[in-house]
């Protein structure tokens, strides 16, 4: 067993009846790593997570955790924790009893149990609420209970389903910090599922972008954000102007357009709105809409290349609707994609 593949998904195929949800997935996760499964709904990320937890039967392939093949191990003997999106607390039990639930099943009782439960509750800052029933708590507090309930079991892998999606902006930041702290202190291997790229970028050591039941790209947040490999990932992380490349020319709805210094091995090029050189370049377009976004102004241009999204510093003078603006798409500011689509 190596730390480099603490959790190994090997050719994992998952299906709901006849519908295949995930096909031939290979993924290796290091001990203590914080991995995000990122993708739109229906991409198979939640299914994959449920399979790791043992809540979803594996059609073919293997799941190996800490050197042990757990593909057929029942969910209750996997040593995997899961914080549900809905938190799935037991409403008839107090915070204490929720957290004690798993330890009691392991046969713990009395003082040792109490100590461990109270420590876990304290570590998420809920000591004053230990004897409350869970429905009396706020959403953020409920999530902390769910976190403590999983962490007290000292799982080998802790998974979180959309951990920040039910929280408001302030709590979101708080929870993000909380999760990073828990991970650092316990060293637990963490996988979380999200459809929100910002969440994934902010939190994860490594991001696995999924699409249609397969992995689209794996990389560090920097990789994913700056060096997307496909149009799908590029679009997901905010490259809004994407063109296929053929014979060194951009393929656009209005025919091909020449571009200088196009990299030879690229299948497509992608520009963030910010990377479009407004007021400077060989192309021109008509301002269709304009909106003010604080530090910048965003434009939608009607151009021979199709609609182009561009962004200019708010300090620049604004263009009016209907104005014709020239712009450039410098190859140097583009992300080079290996796959278009």
């Amino acid at each position: 067993m190596s730390d480099a593949s603490f959790l190994l998904l090997d050719g994992l195929t998952l299906a709901y009846g006849k519908t295949t949800a995930v096909e031939g997935l290979n993924l290796s996760i290091r001990r203590g790593e914080l991995v995000a499964l990122l993708g739109p709904s229906g991409c198979g990320k939640t299914t994959t997570m449920r399979a790791i937890a043992g809540l979803m039967p594996v059609k073919s392939g293997r799941i190996v955790l800490d050197g042990r093949d757990i593909t057929r191990t029942p969910a209750n003997r996997r040593e995997v924790g899961l914080v549900f999106q809905s938190y799935a607390l037991f409403p008839h039990l107090t915070v204490f009893e929720n957290v004690a639930f798993g330890l009691r099943l392991k046969g713990m009782s009395g003082k040792p149990l109490e100590d461990r439960v109270l420590t876990a509750i304290a570590s998420v800052g809920l000591s004053p609420f230990a004897n409350r029933k869970t429905p009396e708590l706020s959403g953020g507090q409920q999530q902390r209970v769910a976190l403590a309930r999983s962490m007290v079991m000292e799982p080998k892998v802790l998974m979180l389903d959309e951990p920040l999606s039910n929280l408001d902006a302030r709590l979101r930041l708080e929870m993000r910090t909380e999760l990073q702290r828990v991970q650092k202190e316990s060293g637990v291997t963490m996988i979380f599922v999200t459809h929100d790229q910002i969440e994934a970028l902010a939190l994860a050591d490594r991001i696995v972008v999924m699409r249609n039941g397969a992995i689209e790209q794996i990389g560090t947040p920097e990789d994913i954000y700056n060096r997307p490999e496909s149009a799908f990932v590029a679009d997901f992380v905010g490259f809004e102007n994407i063109f296929a490349l053929k014979d060194g020319q951009l393929v656009t709805p209005g025919g091909t357009a020449p571009i200088a210094d196009a990299p030879a091995d690229a299948a497509a090029l992608a520009w963030r709105p910010r990377a479009v050189a407004l007021g400077n370049g060989p192309f021109s377009g008509v301002v269709r809409s304009s909106s003010f976004a604080g530090s910048a102004r965003e434009y939608l241009l009607d151009t021979p290349l199709g609609p182009i999204k561009a962004e200019a510093d708010a300090a620049h003078p604004a263009h009016d609707l209907g104005d014709t603006v020239s712009f450039g798409l410098p190859a140097a500011t583009a992300a080079t994609l290996r796959r278009f689509g």
């Binding site: 995997v80 549900f84 799935a88 037991f90």
Partner: peptide
Amino acid sequence: RSDMEEAAVLLGA
């Protein structure tokens, strides 16, 4: 919600 049961199972039940 059925995920409550799943949570219990993951805690060892």
